[in-house]
Design a protein around this nucleic acid. Structure first.
Lengths: 222, 222
DNA sequence: GACTTATGACTGACTAGTCAGTCATAAATT
DNA sequence: AATTTATGACTGACTAGTCAGTCATAAGTC
């Protein structure tokens, strides 16, 4: 028995694809990509690590050099893949914090565009779907997401909605009480695309646009 | 192999809790109820039929007297539990078909109430969640739902929205193009309740009310 | 710079455990 | 006693996780 095998995670700090097999895209990334495919196709329980390994062109044991077990691989996948989006989201929400205040309506369009382009149109939508579908069975994950993504995102939206009410951009406080209403159609779009798109394709961008116009248009129609 | 086991379904027509063990709620129903618990707690793949049997106070073999296999049990569960709701829904949507036309706004409130009371507040919300989460892995099921529930429901909503536009109740055709927008928050509420309710409880009824007011309120504000 | 030794990333056959589905037998019913 | 309904021990397919061994490369030695 290898006495040190416990906390392995080699190269965690370097991030360089070093030595042996120079084309060597980092194995870790290969495995994560393969895992996304398998998990989003089969769900956590039915996904086989043998298949992940095969897809990543790696032996099964290699997975265990980089991840403690199946669940760690899964959770790490879901955690790491969202942070870039959160970064962008925060940038968008912050934009206009200082100088001229961007109207909430404009902000909503930007957030929607970001979401459509960076999530719904990419494989990240599968990440979101996995969180929605497997979340209830992984309390740690649900808590992480609530803390890091949901409460932050909705908190920011709520703050902007509050300001919009004060400044007269919004007449109703519905969005302050339920900022979820701003993003609800985005979730619906994700679920739709993964189940019903083959029967009736959905234009997510148009959907979000129509939704936001619904929320704001009438405000301005005197 | 029992040659008849294929299309078994004993007593399928009677629907009476008959004979033996007079407290005897029909075994079939017992099994379905237990299955809902296990499946919604663990998902299809991780749910164990041993546990379903235990919960239903029945031997494992008994399950196979009533259902062909695990997947049949699952699919039948999801199919049968929604039809009563569809019945109610159709009643609501038909109400006002003949005499005085109920405004779409009023209709939306009724649909929302129905959904909140009959689905979100009950164990049926778990049925919907299972459909959303497992649907992609059961194409037959997804197709069934699209055909029997989604396209019908959205079709009805779309027709009413069209009329509302013609009659001036709605200024925008957004709801005609995307009737999904009417129900999106309901799905969000279901997902929220199963993942985040313990961190931040959501008042689904108030959410739906705020949403519908958002959609219609401003139309009428001169 | 050739030759030897050391390293550790990588492999995949193997183990131990799980669970859907079966079936010989028993109980209940008619 | 014949038939229907129920039981639960059992089987076999499947898979997460392990670990002894391999080998490409790096480091040390002359």
């Amino acid at each position: 028995m290898r006495t040190l095998a416990k906390k392995k995670k080699p190269k965690v700090a370097t991030a360089k694809p070093q030595r042996r097999s120079e084309q060597g895209a980092d194995k870790r990334e290969l495995i994560l990509a393969a895992a996304l495919d398998e998990f989003s196709q089969n769900g956590f329980a039915s996904a086989r690590l043998d298949d992940v390994a095969k897809r990543a062109n790696v032996a099964k044991g290699t997975i265990y050099l980089y991840f403690k077990d199946k669940e760690s691989l899964f959770q790490e996948l879901l955690r790491t893949q969202i942070s870039p989006v959160m970064g962008m989201l925060e940038a968008v929400l912050a934009g206009g914090k200082d100088a001229k205040p961007v109207p909430l309506r404009e902000l909503a369009h930007r957030v929607a565009d970001l979401f459509v382009e960076q999530v719904i149109a990419t494989r990240r939508k599968d990440i979101v779907r996995l969180i929605l579908t497997e979340g209830p069975r992984f309390p740690k994950l649900a808590e992480f997401y609530y803390r890091e993504v949901i409460s932050r995102g909705l908190g920011a939206l709520r703050a902007r909605a509050e300001r919009a009410v004060k400044e007269g951009e919004l007449k109703s406080d519905a969005l302050v009480r339920f900022p979820q209403l701003i993003v609800a159609p985005a979730l619906t779009a994700i679920m739709w695309k993964s189940m019903f798109d083959k029967f009736e394709p959905l234009d997510a961008k148009a959907l979000m646009k129509a939704h936001i116009e619904n929320l704001f248009d009438k405000e301005e129609r005197q």
